[in-house]
């Protein structure tokens, strides 16, 4: 399902050294047309519909049009991200609309303690125990 850029909404991220969509695309698909100053997807048949560009676009200029070789036209699935949740609008071909809101994190950013208050089991590099093990295994099954 290829992403496409709505011309009118795209400003080529002129304030940034490269566009947000170029930065985020895991397959190096988004490019900036330097003459028009607009971004576009250079290989729609290599697009995985990961929606990274859609989610990151600061002007909401990117949408997804379902792969035309098997999807009828007319449906739109569009996300809107906030800091702790994502709102999805699903518009059907027959105009029916559904909305879903899901949490994307349950803790504030930067608040997670990697050790979760658990002890480092050993400093021995040759030991098979990983950091916080055996504490974090929650079982004494592996202790000899």
């Amino acid at each position: 399902m290829p992403s496409f850029v709505i011309s009118e909404k795209c400003d080529g991220c002129k304030a940034l050294d490269k566009t947000a969509c170029q930065y985020i695309c895991p397959n190096d698909l988004m490019v900036l047309d330097k003459i028009k100053n607009k971004a576009y997807n250079r290989a729609v048949d290599m697009c995985w519909e990961c929606y990274s560009c859609v989610k990151i676009c600061p002007t909401q200029a990117i949408e997804i049009r379902g792969y035309a070789d098997f999807m009828p036209l007319g449906a739109v699935v569009q996300p809107l991200r906030s800091t702790d949740s994502i709102m999805w609008s699903v518009k059907f071909r027959n105009k029916k609309i559904k909305r879903f809101k899901f949490p994307i994190r349950t803790t504030p950013e930067g608040s997670i303690d990697p050790k979760s208050g658990m002890e480092t089991g050993t400093d021995d590099l040759k030991s098979p125990l990983l950091r916080t093990e055996p504490d974090s295994l929650g079982t004494d099954l592996f202790e000899k």
Partner: peptide, 9 residues
Amino acid sequence: ISQALNWAS
């Protein structure tokens, strides 16, 4: 996500 779009389409 494309599966959701496929259902919607």
